[in-house]
């Protein structure tokens, strides 16, 4: 199955079996490996991407469910003209990054939150990242990093 989609800052053609997981198309077929596979069942959020403006788990979406013209944002797309986004910078500065495996998903959840809600409360921040498991931090530094970008 062929699809023409917007991936980060470019238009690409992807061709894969419709029952292939979207994450595998991204990681293995398109070599966009920033998106991580943590559990394969939508329980850890490491594979989070932003699909048409909404944060979703790419491990439980099949390539066949992607339409021509769909827009996908992965962690690679957060860098603009070689510059880190405010969230990326804040994550590094605040010690929110440890092993890094949850970070791409975490950043996309936070990006989706701030796109919709300019002034989230701490409770809303926690809600927005509660689908992203982190095993290294106590989440406190991640929440602080997001809060500083409001």
């Amino acid at each position: 199955m062929k699809r023409r989609i917007k991936l980060n800052n470019g238009i690409i053609n992807a061709d894969a079996d419709p029952i292939r997981r979207l994450i595998d198309v991204l990681r293995y077929d398109l070599q966009v490996t920033g998106t991580k596979d943590g559990c394969g069942e939508g329980a850890c959020g490491a594979c989070s991407i932003i699909l048409n403006g909404e944060c979703v788990n790419s491990c439980i979406i099949l390539f066949g469910q992607i339409e021509d013209g769909d827009e996908i944002l992965t962690v690679e797309g957060l860098l603009k003209d070689g510059k880190l986004s405010r969230l990326q910078e804040s994550f590094v500065k605040n010690g929110a990054v440890h092993c890094g495996a949850c970070i791409p998903g975490m950043l996309l959840s936070a990006t989706a939150l701030l796109n919709k809600n300019l002034k989230p409360t701490d409770e809303e921040i926690k809600d927005s990242i509660s689908g992203n498991l982190c095993r290294c931090t106590g989440y406190g530094k991640i929440i602080k990093a997001i809060r500083e970008c409001i």
Binding site: R27, G34, T35, V75, L78, V92, K93, V97, G100, I103
Partner: peptide, 17 residues
Amino acid sequence: PRLDGYDKVTGKVKYVD
């Protein structure tokens, strides 16, 4: 700040998979 921070927030870091 962590020396590997930049690579980790940009998705550039290459884990084995």
